[in-house]
Design a protein around this nucleic acid. Sequence first.
DNA 1: ACTCCACGTTTACAGTTGTAAACTCAATTT
DNA 2: AAATTGAGTTTACAACTGTAAACGTGGAGT
Lengths: 146, 146
Amino acid sequence: MATTELTATITDAEWRVMRIVWTLGQADSHTIIDLLVRQHDWKPATIKTLIGRLVKKGALGTTKDGRQYIYHPLIAEQAAMDTALATELNQMCAMCRGKAFVHAIDETELSQDDIQTLISHLQKKLTTAPTAVSCDCLPADYEGSC
Amino acid sequence: MATTELTATITDAEWRVMRIVWTLGQADSHTIIDLLVRQHDWKPATIKTLIGRLVKKGALGTTKDGRQYIYHPLIAEQAAMDTALATELNQMCAMCRGKAFVHAIDETELSQDDIQTLISHLQKKLTTAPTAVSCDCLPADYEGSC
DNA sequence: ACTCCACGTTTACAGTTGTAAACTCAATTT
DNA sequence: AAATTGAGTTTACAACTGTAAACGTGGAGT
C-alpha cells in the first residue's frame, strides 16, 4: 500500500478518475464509471480508457477480485496535489508568485483550521523572508535584468 | 494596449516566451530568440514557432517596425498567472486545497511584503471562514458521500 | 540591379490527450 | 451446452504540444 513516486504526469481528465479512487480508497470499475458518468458527459468507454492509462502509468494498482479488478491509488493525493501546484508555480515569474497566492487565496474557500495553519506558517516564514524576490524571467546576465 | 481576456490556453513552452515579453514590455523576435536560446536548448526555429502560435491565439500583438515586428503582450501577466493557478486548484479536491496551499507556501520564496499581505488577507478571511470545507470528489447524493 | 540575409510563414512529425467504438474472453444465465 | 453479458484490452482518431527544418520575400549591401 506504500505510495510511490510517479514518473509520468496525470492529465486533467485522469485527475477526475483519481479523485474518485482517492476518496473511496479503492473501487471497482463499475463504481468509478457509474460515478463519473454522473459527473461528466463521458461515455463508459472513455472512463475505461482513462483507468487503463492510469494503471499503465503506475498511478493505480489492481487487485483481482473474482472476474474483475479492484483499483487503488499508488500515489498519494496530497503528494500529487503538491507536485502539480509546485510545477505550475515554478513556471511563473518568481517575483509574481506572491501576488498569485494572494489572488488564489482570496478566491478559494478555506476552513478556519486551514487559514490558521497558513497564518502560523507565514508568520514563521516572515522571520527569514527576504525583503524582495527578484524576477527570474531573463538570463541573470541580461543588461536590463528586470 | 488594453489587455484582453484570452480564450485559448498558454502552454508550458509558450509561457517561457510570454515571460520574456512580459518582463521586457515588448521585444522583437531577435531579442526573444536570443534570450530563450540562452535559457533552454531550443533552436531558433522552435522559438519562432512558439511566437507564431502566441500571435495566432491572441496572446501577443504585433507592431510593424520597418522590416520586422515588435511583439507585445495582449494579456496581463498577473491575470494569466491567476487563471492558471485557479484552473489547477479547481481540478483538485476542495477539502485538500488548504493543505496544498500550506505546502506550496512552505516551498515558495516570498518577500516580507507578500507574506504580510497574505497574512492580512487570511486574517480578514478568517472572520467569515467555514469550520470545514467538504470533499467535492463524489456526486453530492452518493451514499458514502466522503 | 543583383545577391544575400534574415524575418515571418508553411510544413513536418512524433508523442500526448480527450474521446470513444470495437473486440476478446471468461463467467453467468437459460 | 449455447447464448449472453460485461470487464478489461485494442484500436481509432482528431486536436494539441514540443520540436524543428524549409521556404518565400522584402530590404540591405555591393
